[in-house]
């Protein structure tokens, strides 16, 4: 005898199994973003431990101490959230939340295949760039709202770093848009079916990659938050859930930037066909392989490079990357214009 499902429960099951909800809540949505953020922290700790001839997380969790990150998160959540007396209370509490929201929203427009994308837009590149341009603002405001001199100095450093690297990032992206003749990331990835833009626009790729590492505040560009020398810079006053939210936001943004790099320059889901695997599985798999490669390179910087001085960071941004980005754009526009003369 079949027991009928009550209509409200039936509707709920249909809603949870619906395509929009699966994409938003599971993959490539909220669950995926949260798990990826946590795994990135674990992966970084294990990788850096190998570089430094240590074991890294080991005791918590059966496989390579993978539950250590969860244990750390619970530890942060169970600590008292202290708001300094001089802080601007509302801004101090709300800015880490805004940072996490903006970082998570980046994933709404980043495709993992033609099918696996939360929201496909004709102007998805512009939307991602808009979010990237706005995402440093909560960090800057948080540094100011802490009401501490150390946070303020860290915030000033962060702002100048962002000023120096945002323009090269934007100019490098313009080159990709011209070459693909589209603002849709899916179209841009499909334009790289034969040759990825990392080869045809190598200078642009280099500029974008360096600017993206700086945008994510990774070594050697983590001077605003240098934990040993500058006591975490602009986030020195944050502890407990505030610090946890900021860390999650920063790792989510890093992951989003790496996926964005894979899509814009490394051909996204295009790769040799994998026998026996349908495209809906093989395409995201290629994206992950490329993601893991780029992420490993970025994380390894922390193990092998020292952080550079503020003067050199700004020098690289203003004096090297901007001219290189303009040269790349000039070459790209020539490659588009010259064939029209022949035709």
């Amino acid at each position: 005898m079949v027991v009928p499902i009550p209509p409200p429960l039936d509707q709920l099951i249909r809603f949870i199994a619906s395509e929009p909800f699966v994409k938003a809540a599971i993959f490539p949505g909220a669950t995926f973003v949260a798990v990826l953020g946590i795994l990135s922290v674990w992966y970084e700790r294990k990788l850096l431990a190998r570089v430094m001839l240590r074991i890294g997380p080991f005791h918590v969790g059966k496989y390579g101490g993978w539950l250590q990150v969860i244990a750390d998160a619970v530890k942060f959540l169970s600590k008292e959230y202290i708001i300094p007396a001089r802080a601007r209370r509302k801004l101090f509490v709300s800015m880490p939340m805004a940072a996490l929201l903006l970082a998570a929203l980046l994933f709404a427009f980043i495709p993992f295949s033609e099918y696996w994308v939360i929201y496909r837009s004709d102007i998805s590149v512009l939307l991602v760039f808009l979010l990237l341009a706005v995402s440093p603002i909560p960090f800057i405001v948080a540094g100011w709202a802490s009401g501490s001199k150390y946070s303020f100095i860290g915030m000033i450093r962060f702002a100048f770093q962002i000023f120096a690297y945002e323009i090269p990032l934007f100019l490098a992206l313009t080159g990709v848009i011209i070459a693909a003749r589209s603002f849709d990331i899916v179209d841009i990835v499909n334009a790289q079916a034969a040759v990825p833009f990392a080869i045809t626009q190598f200078i642009g790729f280099l500029v974008f990659f360096i600017a993206a590492v700086s945008e994510a505040e990774r070594i050697p560009f983590d001077l605003p938050t240098a934990e040993q020398e500058l006591v975490e810079g602009w986030m020195v006053e944050y502890g407990s859930v505030g610090f946890l939210t900021i860390q999650l936001a920063m790792y989510t943004k890093l992951d989003a930037l790496v996926f964005f790099t894979v899509n814009m320059y490394l051909g996204g889901w295009h790769g040799p066909s994998l026998p026996g695997l349908p495209d809906t599985v093989a395409q995201p798999l290629w994206v992950f392989v490329k993601f893991l490669t780029v992420l490993t390179i970025i994380l390894l910087f922390r193990g092998v490079y020292t952080r550079i001085t503020m003067r050199r960071i700004l020098d690289l941004g203003w004096r090297v990357l901007i001219p290189l980005a303009l040269i790349n754009l000039f070459i790209v526009s020539l490659t588009v214009y010259l064939p029209t003369l022949v035709g």
Binding site: K23, I118, Y119
Partner: peptide, 17 residues
């Protein structure tokens, strides 16, 4: 359905913090 997914995802992203 794409717009729905964006709305659900935004709601979840707001809820997480």
């Amino acid at each position: 359905s794409s717009t729905d997914a964006l709305i659900y995802y935004t709601v979840l992203s707001v809820a997480l913090p």
